[in-house]
Design a binder for these strands. Sequence first.
DNA 1: CTCATTACTAACAATTTTGTGAGTTGCCCA
DNA 2: TGGGCAACTCACAAAATTGTTAGTAATGAG
Lengths: 108, 108
Amino acid sequence: MRKESSTNFENQQTLTDFCNASKTLQLISGRWKLSLLFSLLEHDRRSFSNFKQLLPAISDRMLALHLKQMTDDLLITKEKIEDGVFYTLTEKGKSLKKILSNLAEWQI
Amino acid sequence: MRKESSTNFENQQTLTDFCNASKTLQLISGRWKLSLLFSLLEHDRRSFSNFKQLLPAISDRMLALHLKQMTDDLLITKEKIEDGVFYTLTEKGKSLKKILSNLAEWQI
DNA sequence: CTCATTACTAACAATTTTGTGAGTTGCCCA
DNA sequence: TGGGCAACTCACAAAATTGTTAGTAATGAG
């Protein structure tokens, strides 16, 4: 999906190497990620279809993509339990809580 | 640049309306914005060429684009002073400081 | 006056992100 | 054993962001 030789890619690379904030920002950048994270902060455990109910406009593709990225980034884990597949925040994911609430509370 | 009728656009719209954090995130999303903001937090006043020195890899176009967006978003102001054009943080811009440091300090 | 520099803008191309529609696999229930 | 649902995946298309190259207007130095 990403081309590993392009000015675009290299610039992003350089920035995240140089600036920790950019690295952090990357983790939560993506159309639906904030909503997914907030929903997990509230509900602790969510299935694919739970998310779809919460965000009727999201496509299966985007949902799966974001979940995969966040899993790869170790923000969430996927577990198969007797009654289905569930996503949960990892400790790393939970530690974003402060940032997320700051974003939510910020005004003017 | 943005098409005002597309699922893509509408989804973004809905999310920022629904979720304040998304609105906030929008303000700081953009390849070089964090670096520009951090630089203004440190130096208070910067010119176009100051930014270019700081970020040799940025193109004139992207620099101008980000500066314009941040100006439109009222995060910065542009002032023509005797020795050139300078950009400064507004109060609104400064109030992002906490969020920015949280992003920068976040680890693991 | 001429040249260089600063602060841009415009046209266009490349890259990346997001969305669509149609499958696929595994499982449960009747 | 056939249908339905959950949780995906795939190929492709649309849209958005980012980068490249070549300008332009205003200012100041020589």
